[in-house]
Amino acid sequence: MSMATEVLNNPLELRISDRLAKNFRRHFKERVIEFILMMAALSAVATTVGIVAILLYESAGFFAHVSIVDFLTDTQWTPLFEDAHYGILPLVMGTLVTSGIALMVAVPLGTIAAIYLSEFASHRVREICKPILELLVGVPTVVFGYFALLFVTPMLQKIFPELPGFNMLGPGIVMGIMIIPYISSMAEDAMRAVPMSMREGSYAMGATRFQTAVRVVAPAATSGIIAAYILGISRAVGETMVVAIAAGQQPTMTINPMEGAATITAYIVQVAMGDLPHGSIGYQSIFAAGLVLAFMTLFFNLLGHLARKKYREAY
């Protein structure tokens, strides 16, 4: 029985003509497409949930042996020693100091590069510069690691002769350079999205290009620029190779960038590549460390989210 006659048999819907009746084939197709799209989106969500679940599960074994208070307050991290200490703070410090140095390099340079590319560079210059800058993203991080160890650190040693071969300054700077394209590219997109009418308003008041860029365009793009910084922070905190190679792998409780230290990521890679038996406490410790790393990234992301909400501009 065709749809039309079905409809016609229902006296209440008599007035629905053949052409207006619900098309079930179209409706079904839409539902199938919607389902496929939803599964694709869910795969990312499921992965995240899975990772967090495994981190929690494995760290539960770790925290059965080590109290959370010790984990968060002890200033030594020596899980592989006879006299084992499980204080995460030295690793957190190492991560924060190297990331801090990286951001001190990447945020100003990335922002300036973005302002130049978006507001000053001619079309031609931008078309040439942007791809070259973005090429930096494609350089494997292990290359950056050796670059830090064998080129930047020796150069820094000429300025600071007492600088040890493994230190946080060199890899921090290199990580910063590595992050520049992430920040500049995203911040530039944000600034280019600012409508031309706003720039014209500024120029019409007699403003220079620089005044327009700094006083009108950048504030209008704040939320996108903050998003760029957050991406940069996440990259720095999560970066592994550069610090594992060039910062030494000695967990040290210090904020002095001239010293070597281990970061959370460097420790994880050290243990994961080593020959510790599965299920041992040393092995489990990397899941606890991973959990801390995940929380740190989450914290920075939340901070960025709040900042973006505060500075969201409607234009």
Partner: peptide, 27 residues
């Protein structure tokens, strides 16, 4: 820039800056 210092403009679509009312006028 000197020309624009003497001849100002109001646009078709209102285009205030992402600033306070005061700072818009003070710009």
């Amino acid at each position: 820039i000197e020309v624009r210092m003497r001849i100002s403009m109001v646009f078709q679509k209102p285009n205030p800056f992402p600033k306070s009312i005061y700072e818009n006028v003070a710009y």
